[in-house]
Design a protein around this nucleic acid. Structure first.
Length: 613
DNA sequence: CCCGTTGCGG
């Protein structure tokens, strides 16, 4: 065997090292042969320790070096980057610059990546401008890193500027733009980016495809989703867990749960995230029971649910008011997970929707990390429960923190006033929102204001309000107004509003019921008959509301004309007694406008059992 | 030669 010169032998040896002991032996040899002083070899030693995850040993070598070249600094910086220690990366970067060592492409790339992961746009841009000064403006690696920095900071428009200036764009730079647009809620542009990449003749991979699939998921276009899925099969893409999980999620999120399950079922390797994708699909589409079943099933298959799975499970409990399971989920979190903002807010929401406002508030006070959405959720909870004063008190408390209220906060606050019938307060805070917080009111805010005025019988004012603004006036605004017209016998305005509603072609049967009830109030019997015909034609796209009660941990669902409950007779008896007692103290039920359509109700019942159980 | 882009949630 021919002996190589020392440095080359050591380099070969280092490359074959897979454990700490063998690296340490080479390390000793390097000391003996005095090759450690060689700038290109000490960097390799640091990189070897880093490769096996031993950052501590790498740092010891680094610290003992008499002088450090770019490669040594880079090796150490990359080591910290691999271990996901962005602040260490930045501190080394700054030390290196202070030592007068000139960073290279690799240094800038990794340093900017660290800023992206800490969402520190300011330092990131500072480093980027230094990179430009050092002549790396046209570098693909540094460029992609900057694209990601802007994408993660929600500055896609800045990313576009950098991207368009890049002379050479490769798979990673295109992919960064795709995922950037997806994460910024601009899925159409993500799809356009994918098409642009195809036109440039750059072959896609699993990562870029994951971005495209996520774009399809947020577009909710089944035809596009199916064609993308078909495209990747035709092109023979090797699908890994991530691609398959994003596919299952794409179908599940948009309610195509059979397709989602088919993808999931055929996955050779699944993990907790794949399960989470399915669970969230079921939970978000109203299949609460199925979501909770899958949570149990995943544990049976040996997977530990993570916080995202629990968030979906809590959402499922909220939807059906299943307090018993909600409490189990809470207990599970206390035992095995750490509370973050998302998980905390989901538990708060669950307690609130399951009727336990005090638990919700106690949790809100306990959760250390509360963000904007946590505050909004708690304010919403008070609103739903009719506690407008508490909602306002919380809002005022919020203004003392550094979290700024957003459009959703005001929507919750205004809705709280509308539920409590506090017209003056509502008007006052609407004004504050517009003038002090410079928040442009949207459809939701106008709907609250219309609801507030219309409930109080000030239908004319509400009508004037919506006619005075130029914003998009959607269904909710008109529905709130018509409900007011119905309750306060305002037939002339109501007729105009009813026509507007019908022009919008809603697919909610409840809206048609409201219009029909309004016509009945106005004694427009021909229109009532038309409405009934229309409802029959349109079929049952939307499931009507039903009540759910939890008794001893078991759910009982009720809807109109439903006689299937085992204690139906007893329940009716008690209801009759309550009805009798209420009339005795002066209650006059307004059931003269109630709508009956027994054929539809039958199909509703079928769906009810699928959904709740 | 190294460095940049990925899957579920309030």
């Amino acid at each position: 065997m021919q002996l190589l010169p020392w440095p080359r032998r050591l380099r070969a040896l280092l490359l074959s090292c897979t454990d700490k002991n063998s690296i340490a032996k080479v390390h000793a040899l390097m000391i003996l042969t005095s090759t450690l002083a060689d700038g290109s070899f000490n960097a390799r030693l640091i990189a070897s320790y880093a490769r096996i995850g031993d950052t501590v040993s790498a740092r010891k070598v680094f610290d003992k070096l008499p002088q450090r070249g770019v490669n040594a600094w880079n090796a150490m910086i990359v080591a910290y980057s691999r271990q996901d220690h962005p602040s260490q990366v930045l501190s080394l970067y700054h030390q290196m610059v202070a030592d007068g060592v000139r960073p290279d492409s690799s240094t800038f790339t990794v340093a900017i990546k660290a800023c992206a992961s800490m969402l520190d746009l300011e330092i990131g841009e500072e480093i980027w401008s230094k990179a430009v000064d050092c002549g790396y403006e046209r570098d693909v690696f540094v460029g992609s890193s900057v694209l990601n920095l802007y994408a993660k900071s929600g500055k896609m428009d800045k990313a576009v500027v950098v991207f368009e200036k890049m002379p050479r764009k490769d798979l990673v730079s295109w992919t960064t733009m795709i995922t950037g647009f997806v994460q910024s809620g601009r899925p159409m542009e993500a799809v356009e980016m994918f098409r642009g990449m195809q036109l440039e003749g750059i072959e896609f991979d699993g990562v870029s495809m994951t971005g495209l699939v996520q774009a399809c998921a947020s577009l909710g276009d089944l035809r596009l989703s199916l064609s993308v899925h078909g495209f990747m099969i035709r092109r023979g893409l090797r699908m890994d867990v991530m691609v398959q999980t994003s596919l299952a999620h794409m179908y599940g999120k948009n309610g195509h749960l059979e397709l989602a399950y088919r993808v999931f079922d055929r996955m050779p390797y699944k993990n907790a995230i794949s399960w989470g994708a399915l669970i969230s699909g079921f939970a978000q589409n109203g299949f609460a029971g199925r979501a909770l079943e899958m949570l149990v099933e995943m544990q049976g298959s040996g997977f530990e649910p993570d916080s995202a799975c629990l968030v979906s499970a809590l959402l499922a409990c909220s939807q059906v008011g299943f307090l018993k399971w909600g409490k189990s989920a809470h207990a599970f979190i206390l035992k095995r997970l750490d509370f973050d903002e998302v998980l905390g807010t989901a538990v708060i929401d669950m307690y609130s929707k399951c009727g336990s406002l005090s638990y919700a508030r106690a949790l809100f006070d306990q959760i250390i990390s509360r963000d904007l959405i946590s505050w909004n959720a708690m304010i919403t909870s008070y609103g739903i429960h009719g506690h407008a004063e508490e909602a306002l008190a919380l809002f005022l408390q919020m203004t003392e923190t550094n979290i700024k209220p957003d459009h959703a906060t005001f929507a919750s606050l205004l809705s709280a006033f509308s539920h409590a019938g506090l017209v003056q307060e509502g008007q006052y805070w609407f004004d504050v929102m517009v003038n002090k917080y410079k928040t442009t009111p949207g459809e939701k805010h106008y709907a609250c204001m219309v609801d507030l005025l219309a409930r109080a019988g000030r239908v004319e004012e509400a009508y004037e309000l919506i006619n005075s603004v130029n914003t998009e006036r959607g269904l909710a605004v008109w529905v709130a107004l018509l409900a007011g017209c119905h309750n306060h016998g305002k037939s002339s305005i109501g007729e105009i509003v009813a026509k507007k509603i019908l022009d919008l072609n809603p697919d909610d049967l409840g809206v048609y019921a409201l219009v029909s009830n309004f016509y009945a109030m106005a004694r427009k019997w021909d229109d009532v008959a038309d409405m009934k015909k229309m409802m029959k034609q349109r079929g049952t796209k939307k499931v009507p509301g039903y009540s759910v009660v939890e008794v001893n941990g078991e759910l009982h669902a009720f809807l109109m004309e439903d006689k299937t409950h085992q204690h139906h007779g007893d329940i009716m008896q008690i209801l009759n007694k309550l009805d009798h007692d209420m009339r005795a103290i002066g209650y006059v039920p307004r059931n003269e406008f109630l709508l009956h359509n027994s054929e539809d109700e039958h199909s509703f019942q079928q769906r009810k059992f699928i959904k709740v159980l």
